[in-house]
């Protein structure tokens, strides 16, 4: 019988620790499939963040480093500058990249470091228990904004893809989601494009992926998908924000 579906070679057989309805697993798989397709497993180095994906290296079968909170882009810079031949990606959440690590991501992008940042935006700090992030929506309730995010007090949610796109250095910056098959296909293409730009030495690339966190949102997986579509996507609009040739 023909095998029509299997685990990507670049994934281990470990079971993930992610909650039901969380989209980290899908994003992991898309990255692993891309690594397989491009045949780069043996020269890829991933960098795990601090956040829910801190243990991502249990699931990817390639070299991995574990960063301090927010510092993955600096570590990726370190690797690429001394080993430009390696394929390097950071895997970061919104607390990690958009808050404590804002300085590192902006400057890495602005220098045009030739690595790929996979930025999973689920609008909360997941691992620490659902605290407010810079990406938390107006009036969204979190454990540190129990009455909902007050934008007069905390400002509006940061649109990272647009922010990075404002830099003058050429880059590939896109926003995707993985809440439905039609989005997953596009997200996969975007991740592949980002890696291809890196392999060609073209530019820095950042793929923001609007994701779900049913546990900390207090929603079922289905409600989470629905809320993403009705509330997140109108604000975090999908599509390419910047391409290196534009």
């Amino acid at each position: 019988m023909a095998r029509v579906f299997q685990k990507p070679k670049s994934m281990t057989s470990a079971h993930t620790h992610y909650c039901p309805g969380c989209t980290h697993g899908i994003v992991h798989r898309l990255i692993a499939e891309t690594i397989d397709e491009l045949g780069i497993q043996d020269r890829t180095v991933g960098i795990a963040p601090v956040g829910c994906a801190v243990l991502a290296y249990h699931y990817f079968d390639c070299d991995f480093q574990e960063a301090a909170h927010g510092r993955a882009p600096a570590m990726a810079t370190g690797i690429k500058r001394v080993r430009p031949d390696l394929l390097v990606f950071t895997y970061q959440g919104d607390g990690d990249l958009a808050s404590i690590g804002m300085g590192e991501i902006i400057h890495a992008a602005n220098r045009g470091e030739k690595f790929t940042a996979i930025f999973v935006n689920n609008t909360v700090y997941g691992m620490t228990g659902g605290q407010m992030a810079p990406t938390t929506m107006p009036n969204q309730k979190t454990t540190t904004s129990p009455a909902g995010r007050d934008v007069t007090n905390c400002g509006m949610p940061i649109k990272i893809a647009e922010l990075i796109s404002a830099l003058q250095t050429p880059a590939y910056v896109t926003r995707q989601t993985v809440i439905k098959p039609k989005y997953i296909i596009k997200a996969k293409k975007a991740i592949r494009k980002a890696f291809e730009y890196q392999m060609a030495g073209t530019c820095f690339s950042l793929v923001e992926i609007v994701s779900t966190c049913p546990t900390n949102w207090g929603k079922t997986p289905l409600e989470s998908i629905k809320w993403t579509e009705t509330d997140l996507l109108p604000y975090y609009q999908l599509g390419d924000c910047k391409t290196p040739d534009a």
Binding site: A68, A74, G78, G103
Partner: peptide, 21 residues
Amino acid sequence: LQAESEVAASYMIFGASAAGE
């Protein structure tokens, strides 16, 4: 490479060292 801060510089060191250089 001139980093954007000492924080970043030190993590570039960590990353590059971890890559074996």
